[in-house]
Nucleic acid binder design. Sequence first.
DNA 1: CGCGCCATTGACAGGTGTCAAGAAACGTGG
DNA 2: CCACGTTTCTTGACACCTGTCAATGGCGCG
Lengths: 248, 248
Amino acid sequence: MSIASRAADRVDIADGIPSPLSSIHTVLTYGRGERIYCETDLADHWYCVLAGAVRKYTVLSDGRRQIVDFLLPGDFFGFRERHHQYFATDAILNGTRVARYPRRSLEAAAERDPHLGGEIREIVIEAISRSQARLLIMGRVTSVEKVGAFLLEMAERCFDRREQTVVLPMSRYDIADYLALSVETVSRALTRLRQERAIRFVDKHRIFILDRNLLENGRDRHAGQGFRETYRADRNLTAVKAKGLGRS
Amino acid sequence: MSIASRAADRVDIADGIPSPLSSIHTVLTYGRGERIYCETDLADHWYCVLAGAVRKYTVLSDGRRQIVDFLLPGDFFGFRERHHQYFATDAILNGTRVARYPRRSLEAAAERDPHLGGEIREIVIEAISRSQARLLIMGRVTSVEKVGAFLLEMAERCFDRREQTVVLPMSRYDIADYLALSVETVSRALTRLRQERAIRFVDKHRIFILDRNLLENGRDRHAGQGFRETYRADRNLTAVKAKGLGRS
DNA sequence: CGCGCCATTGACAGGTGTCAAGAAACGTGG
DNA sequence: CCACGTTTCTTGACACCTGTCAATGGCGCG
């Protein structure tokens, strides 16, 4: 609950919502773990997080839960992707507040107001930005790198300026399902980063960053472990060489 | 080159391009490995693949190249995400043709024509869809599952109806950098899928799918390896229980 | 033909998942 | 306010998987 109230009063995102939308939204409040929409619901609303935090996920065929996005105050979601893959969302914190917009009204408003349409495009592009940044995190090799990159992402999205700490509203399980690691590995990676003096725990959900460089790249961590330093350097060379071909 | 010509004549995506855009585009042709734009370029154009294939990637601090998207005929790219993270793109095949639209003209056209604006939103949402589907692939645990899921993704995006095969325009190295695996592991996974009669090679870049189920989930593959079957089942239960809390 | 590049296969070491156990924090009810 | 059960988080031990290193063969190209 300390987390919930903290996240709630820390952020005020009235300016994050395009003004023309304010007339057609409904504000809903959810409890921790409560479903906002599930994969079989009709995709008839857009949403914007006002306070708290939301997870967007799917349950894979093997029973694992893959979280594809954490939504924080100011983030929009619910623009339903066509195609097969559908996701469910639920609240992470008690008192998570969400603004809901009827899709039809939204699209009608965008048709009438091209400027609003542009803002919506920006919102969607922002979501792509998050998604592709997350792909880079998932692409990292070791668990310590993944967790370090995750902390840096959260540092930009969920930073408490007063205390200079990164706020992690979600549980270790959520982090694990977000990074596709086991809970134990996430916990070990955090312990490791603490031992290496890269971070310091205020409590389990608030983290003080001591050394950004140590988080960014696991440099020096692989010393003596036989990592192939020049691994893909030559591959880049091949790309450079290929670039030399004339454009037709 | 056999791949290039094949991909070129297989796809005709004139209908994929919103008609109002046809007047303001320029068609460019690239050779294999040639740069289309790099991370330092101004983000002043949108692009649409007409023929061939394109990879969008970034080079991480440790020198590894992470591919975040393969662009195939009909796919748009270049809506530059704000924020730090920038990507470069280059052609995968000789004769890759790309339509380029000046960003300003595009936005001006969208302001004038709300319907076009809606189409552009759809295009961007489509890109999110790809990105999040890819996150699911990255979230899979074993290499065989990753490669299997990748083949299914490509089967939907790059299928040769005449030959009933999946066309893989990219090299094994590209696949490896896309899935964040080593080339050797990708190769081993493909060999394994072939041995298990899930796929059959026509040649190195064309694959016939024998058993979709084997690709979808590595079922039976973990038999006897002590996989935790009920791993996150109970976690779902906790979510269900939490769901029971009343909404305020 | 020889030279790169791509693809495949084998051997070994290190990292992560699993299983297990324990500690800490939280919510509930007395 | 405290006791208690539940959930969350942490730590340890071991097996499997993937990255690394190495070697080989096929293929296109100059």
